[in-house]
């Protein structure tokens, strides 16, 4: 009753929607980099949004089914997938039999998810199955997957049912700037720095992982000090150290930090960060808190519309 890892890909971990309430003791939320993709993959399978899946970064991998049947759905960035050599589209369910091999190729974006019906039979740590590799807990043995791992599955066999598909995923809006709230430390930067952030482009460097993404672009100058007495970090905040190059904090980030934070990406756009890659160009647009709240609601409405459009086939 397991899924065998033949080839783990580049950096594959078990992730759900993250752990809540433990930042006060230094434990970051972790969780899916593209939480929208995880939610939709689970929706295609007809199960709750927070069932943990395999998050594959940049390259997929190969897995062999070691249970009677396993229903699964690939969600997230576009990626070639085969089941025993036959192509399978993303955003649809498929059922694999014992001994069959699911092969996931190069991801055309940041991350893709292998969601399975019923999920993985792994212990929750602080209420979550998300892997936090830096401290070595959560997910499968607190680490990224390796060849030879056997991931225990909850279901021995998928119930007989027609397959389902999502005809129109929620639009990725790749061309749109990431919306930000200025602050909490925007006043520690020059007016020119704020203008620069809102008009220039920043590219994602190779120094990008689940902890954070260093960006490269026109430097952002501090008014005075370039350090603060540490306070709490939020996912999506843009911290700027002395060299003026911003770093976007991702879900495995430090929970507190001593660099001024010029802005914070709004909740509705966080999932788009998960699909950014080294070389991706990011632009930023400032919005007011009320606009961020409307954006969150519009995204939620788009998600509900997409879920309602899921249909059975053939």
């Amino acid at each position: 009753m397991s899924l065998l890892v033949e080839d783990p890909g580049l950096f594959t971990t078990v992730q759900d929607l993250g752990r809540t309430g433990h930042q006060r003791i230094g434990v970051p939320p972790s969780g899916a980099l593209d939480s929208l993709a995880l939610r939709m993959g689970n929706a295609v399978l007809g199960q709750p949004p927070g069932i943990a899946a395999l998050e594959m970064c940049r390259a997929g991998g190969q897995f062999t089914v070691a249970t009677e049947t396993m229903r699964f759905c690939i969600a997230g960035a576009d990626v070639p997938v085969t089941l025993d050599g036959a192509a399978i589209a993303p955003w649809r369910s498929a059922t694999a039999r014992r001994g069959q091999s699911v092969k996931i190729g190069r991801i055309r974006g940041g991350v893709a998810y292998l969601c399975v019906l019923g999920g993985f039979a792994l212990p929750a740590v602080m209420g979550s199955l998300s892997t936090y590799t830096r401290a070595g807990f959560g997910g499968f043995q607190g680490r990224r997957l390796a060849a030879g791992d056997a991931l225990p599955l909850v279901l021995e066999a998928a119930p007989e049912a027609r397959e389902r598909l999502l005809p129109h995923p929620v639009p990725a809006e790749r061309a749109r700037p990431l919306r930000i709230l200025l602050g909490p430390h925007a006043e520690m930067f020059t007016d020119a720095a704020i203008r620069t952030l809102l008009t220039e482009s920043y590219s994602v460097t190779n120094n990008a992982d689940r902890l954070g993404m260093r960006l490269a672009g026109p430097p952002l100058a501090h008014v005075g000090a370039n350090e603060i007495v540490s306070d709490g970090n939020a996912t999506g905040c843009l911290q700027v150290p002395g060299d003026g190059q911003p770093m976007v904090l991702m879900p495995d980030r430090h929970t507190m930090g001593g660099y001024p934070k010029i802005a914070t990406i709004i909740t509705a756009d966080l999932h788009r960060l998960g699909q950014a890659l080294p070389g991706s160009v990011l632009r930023f647009e400032a919005v007011a808190p009320e606009q961020a709240e409307v954006a969150a609601w519009l995204l939620e409405r788009a998600i509900q519309t997409a879920i309602a459009s899921i249909r059975e086939f053939p």
Binding site: T20, R24, D231, I266, A292, E293, W297, E300
Partner: peptide
């Protein structure tokens, strides 16, 4: 209010914008 994070001089309040507005 999702969680609070005491820092050395501040309290970070993480909230779900769908359930609790900034105002």
């Amino acid at each position: 209010l999702t969680e609070t994070v005491p820092g050395l001089r501040s309290l970070l309040l993480l909230h779900d914008p769908l359930l609790l507005s900034a105002r």
